[in-house]
Amino acid sequence: MAQAVAVTPPVAPRRRQARRWSGWGFVGPFMAVFALVFLAPIIYSIWLSVFRTQLVGGTTFVGLENYQRALQDDQFWSALGRVSAFLVVQVPIMLGIALLVALAIDSGRLYGRDFFRISIFLPYAVPAVVATLMWGFMYGTRFGLVGNINDALGVSLPNPLSPDLVLAAIGNIVTWEFVGYNMLIFYAALRTVPTSLYEAAEIDGAGQWQVIRAIKIPAIRGALVIATIFSIIGSFQLFNEPSILQALAPNAITTYFTPNLYAYSLSFSGQQYNYSATVAIIMGLLTMAIAYVVQLRGMRKEA
């Protein structure tokens, strides 16, 4: 007994140590890739954001000066304001339409359901760049679709690419692109609702409207939250559409139209990599914060 007690201690730590290493062996490859493709770029951006490189004078360490500058930068705030307005208006419209379509398809009362589903989803399969080019041509008031309508009907529609309307025009493109994608998320969630619930509702004499309100919407709350978070991230990262339309409407879409476009212009035409990294980091933090708040709210309601 005494012997056994004396022997045990030296063995136990050795075994624990061996276990620790073999664990790392399994996690290692993942950790290496994770560090390389996730952590390194973030750390590099943070590293960049505390320096300043000048065409004359080279690189100097400036601490948080770039952050200070961003917080006082009118162009940055106007870009943020623009995507926030976009978020508040476009996202509810897009998700509303997507939900409506998903419920319609799920209702089983739709004639040609599969065709309907595919055609709504199809725009999502069109690359955003191509979609924007296509819409850009349609928006043309001289030779585009808008121009043709003006000529044919003798009306004069406002130019969708004018500074006042261009954000709405972009909202339209994004809605067209992503209704199908969100519809699919909602529809997939709806398919997981057990049919026994519907039968029970029918026995209780509930109408379609009541079924939607009491069963379907609560059942897909998780999917709604996810879709909302994706859309928030998408809005804050708005880049492709304005970047491509810029060639057609250079005066309506400024180089600081959205935060991402601003960061892009700063680094690619201004060589202000450091400040650009700062803008990107601030946007990343803001997006995270807002997405987190939405998630918290969504989950609390569920509970």
Binding site: L55, S162, P163, P250, N251, A252, T254, T255, Y256, S265, S269, G270, Q271
Partner: peptide, 20 residues
């Protein structure tokens, strides 16, 4: 010596005269 950047912000500034 930084004309490339200056030209890139032309539409943000002078370009506004064409639309407003």
């Amino acid at each position: 010596p930084f004309q490339v950047y200056a030209n890139s912000i032309f539409n943000d500034t002078v370009g506004q005269a064409y639309v407003s």
